[in-house]
Design a protein around this nucleic acid. Structure first.
Lengths: 237, 237
DNA sequence: GCGTCACATATGTCTATACAAAAAGAAGTC
DNA sequence: GACTTCTTTTTGTATAGACATATGTGACGC
């Protein structure tokens, strides 16, 4: 499957034996010399096959002792955080977007803290409502650091959701996502048409370019509207 | 930082320049020959440094064209879902565990559906409470498919949380995580000492080995107890 | 029995070289 | 001008050999 280079094939076959349970955790993987003989290749090739498996933690390698199947411990999963418009239309519902509020101003101390600004600067504050089939689907509360993205001040976010615009126009180097559950704030509850006792999924995303913060967005979804789904099979290849 | 082998150093330095924004997306990375000259090493070493970066998608390599910093586009993040005991102790709080209920029986139709059993079979149903500093931290409701894991019937889960035992004893090939927000069920609210109007983070995990379902676990956390944090810097190192 | 040291073994890293494959660009052909 | 072919650059993969480093094991001495 996939490409047919030797070291990938060796890696895939070993990973497969581990995944299938044929080699249980703790089982000894053949030594580089044995694999070298088995596949009729050089040790470098075997090493190139095994090194990524060790880096991913599928196997543990110890000098002199050998190579062993490690016990999976940490659940690290890949989570897709899709564009909201794409998510809604993927469900076959009509996507709607509405700009509820927009303000360009010098950041308040709260906003400066949320954006991690070291000194006060101008920010663009946006409140947007995303709808699915006419009903509120999620509330987006976004702060954009105008020092980092001055051109955002000129964009008409009443026509275009800021998420897509930023992704297309501003390269970012780092992002942090925080997923939690909470009751909506009073204003969020009003915008979403929910009681303040509702359970909401809250996704906070902070984005950097180098040391500079670009944006901070909080997406609030009614708990029954949206699930984040992550699939993980322990080894891409 | 970390180990001082040459190829790791080269990799780290290039990743750093990309992360810092010094080399923006689309920027051309020096060719293998240039790096070889710059670091005074062989091309194999340069290649070993760059290959993992390409595999992770931080850079794009095209024959003849060269190597380029790729634009981060996908919003796919790596989420660590740690062991609850590890999570609690990492916060410096005392971890406590309590088995609230245990039943081995033929699956009800609801349970069979949750586990995706094609025909009715025996399951082990567990309810466990995880505590941090004495206070309820999360409720674990777990179904184990005894057809897939018969030895689970013999284990004393009053002494050991089932998550760790399963991870150590049963190899799995695929997992699906579903993250949502919801009010706790009546029984969950009671176990966690919450009102039924509380906002809870609910994590559903379903695990397979091949086509066979191993377990389905629902973890319910009080919204103020637990955040899932995902960091995406297009490069661990 | 117990601690110590030497050796064998297995992985870790690196070099120098070789050929293959893809593709951009140049040159030649109709 | 458009198409084909050739050349050259750059990455992809693999080999064989070398030395470094960690460590389990067993031999040795007490």
């Amino acid at each position: 499957m996939s490409e047919a280079t030797l070291h990938r094939r060796i890696r895939a076959e070993i990973a497969e034996r581990i995944r299938s349970g044929a080699w249980p955790p703790g089982h000894r993987v053949p030594s580089e010399h044995e694999l070298m003989a088995a596949y009729g290749c050089s040790r470098m090739t075997v090493n190139k096959a095994l090194a990524p498996l060790a880096e991913q933690g599928l196997i543990v390698r110890r000098r002199k002792a050998g190579t062993f199947v490690s016990r999976p411990r940490i659940h690290s999963v890949v989570l897709d955080i899709p564009d909201i418009a794409a998510e809604v239309t993927a469900r076959g519902e009509a996507y709607g977007y509405e700009l509820l509020g927009r303000a360009a101003r010098v950041a308040t101390s709260d906003e400066a803290e949320a954006l991690g600004l070291v000194r006060p600067g101008r920010i663009l504050s946006l409140r947007c409502l995303h709808r699915a089939a006419g009903r509120p689907f999620g509330l987006e509360e976004r702060l954009i650091n105008l020092a980092a993205v001055p051109e955002a001040a000129e964009v008409d976010f009443a026509a275009e959701p800021p998420g897509g615009w930023l992704l297309g126009h501003v390269p970012w180097t780092e992002a942090e996502h925080r997923i939690s559950a909470a009751h909506p704030s009073k204003s969020a509850a009003t915008a979403l048409g929910l009681p303040t006792t509702a359970a909401c999924l809250v996704l906070d995303r902070r984005t950097w370019r180098g040391d500079e913060r670009i944006t901070h967005v909080r997406l609030t979804f009614p708990g029954d509207a949206y699930d984040l789904v992550a699939r993980f099979s322990p080894q891409p290849g």
